[in-house]
């Protein structure tokens, strides 16, 4: 009896961080999936991806007033604005579409720099407060602990979003085209689908995903001057860990990152700065050879 009680006690303090990790991981997944699509299909390292998330976050901060209607409005506006930013980015990339990846990456970095500056000019340099719908402001009891209701709902919503994403990529014609463009872009071009249109569509989709993540995740990773960098870094680590292009791998990697950032920090506070680094090094070192083949063809 005593052993059992001690056992639950040992797990007990880590339940809430673990749940937080799931919320964080799903948020990073939705944000990173945009980067995966962008990288896998258009073969562009989009350094402005964090900016697309920040657009969603600032929209949420500006529009949310505690009601459900404002959440729906913020979601619509945030998704549209970030998707429009993605299309704009695709337009800017068109002149260098046949160029090398270095200049494309540098161009997206320039856009990220300028866009971040515009966001700060528009919304001020302070981190704005985000108001969640008042119905979700309270907390619920889970196994004897209080837990923020918004995060619990967010976990459900993000899980639904992830499932929908999976179905779209697997089952719809657009998803098939996207997967085909990953495997053989020339063949898809031969089918009569313009590569420029695919690029614009992909960047718009990446923007929409990042914008949705930005609005819904604003209470978790809030808008601010460092948001774009944080989200870009987390997404990059997830994409690298997830093995580039595989949705299931991306989801697993995102959940692992979420747990490392919350549960890992609670378990090993002294090693906290190195955990993310160590995780990436470990996975890459183990899988390097297996991934190498895929990377060369990627």
């Amino acid at each position: 009896m005593i052993a059992v009680a001690a056992g639950t006690n040992r797990i007990d303090p880590y339940l809430i961080p673990a749940l937080d990790g799931v919320a964080y991981g799903l948020l990073v997944f939705v944000a990173a999936s945009g980067l995966v699509v962008c990288f896998g299909v258009a073969n562009i390292l989009n350094l402005a991806h964090g900016l697309l998330y920040a657009i969603g976050g600032y929209t949420a901060a500006a529009l949310l007033d505690g009601g459900w209607a404002s959440l729906a409005l913020a979601l619509a506006v945030g998704v549209l604005a970030a998707a429009a930013a993605g299309v704009l980015l695709a337009g800017l990339l068109t002149p260098v579409a046949t160029g090398n990846h270095l200049s494309q990456a540098l161009l997206t970095f320039g856009v990220a720099l300028a866009g971040g500056s515009l966001l700060v000019a528009g919304f001020g340099p302070d981190n704005p407060q985000v108001q969640v719908p008042s119905a979700l402001e309270g907390s619920v009891m889970i196994a004897g602990h209080r837990y923020a209701a918004y995060r619990l709902v967010f976990i459900v919503v993000a899980a639904v979003l992830a499932a929908a994403l999976y179905l779209v990529v697997r089952r719809t014609r657009a998803g098939m085209l996207v997967r085909a463009a990953v495997d053989d872009p020339e063949m898809v071009a031969c089918l009569g689908v313009s590569p420029a249109r695919i690029r614009a569509g992909v960047l718009a989709a990446a923007g929409a995903l990042a914008g949705a993540a930005g609005v819904l995740g604003a209470p978790i990773i809030g808008p601010g001057t460092g948001t774009a960098d944080t989200v870009l870094l987390l997404s990059l680590v997830v994409v690298v860990l997830g093995g580039l292009g595989s949705m299931a791998g991306t989801l697993l990697a995102a959940l692992a990152i979420g747990e490392i950032q919350t549960l890992g920090v609670a378990l090993l506070p002294s090693a906290a700065p190195f955990l993310l680094f160590a995780a990436m090094a470990a996975v890459l070192a183990v899988r390097a050879r297996g991934l190498a083949g895929r990377w060369r063809t990627a």
């Binding site: 800017l92 540098l106 161009l107 970095f109 320039g110 856009v111 990220a112 720099l113 300028a114 866009g115 971040g116 500056s117 515009l118 000019a121």
Partner: peptide, 10 residues
């Protein structure tokens, strides 16, 4: 400065 610098990048 970041705005101008970004534009210069592009």
């Amino acid at each position: 400065a970041p705005l101008v610098l970004g534009a210069l990048f592009v």
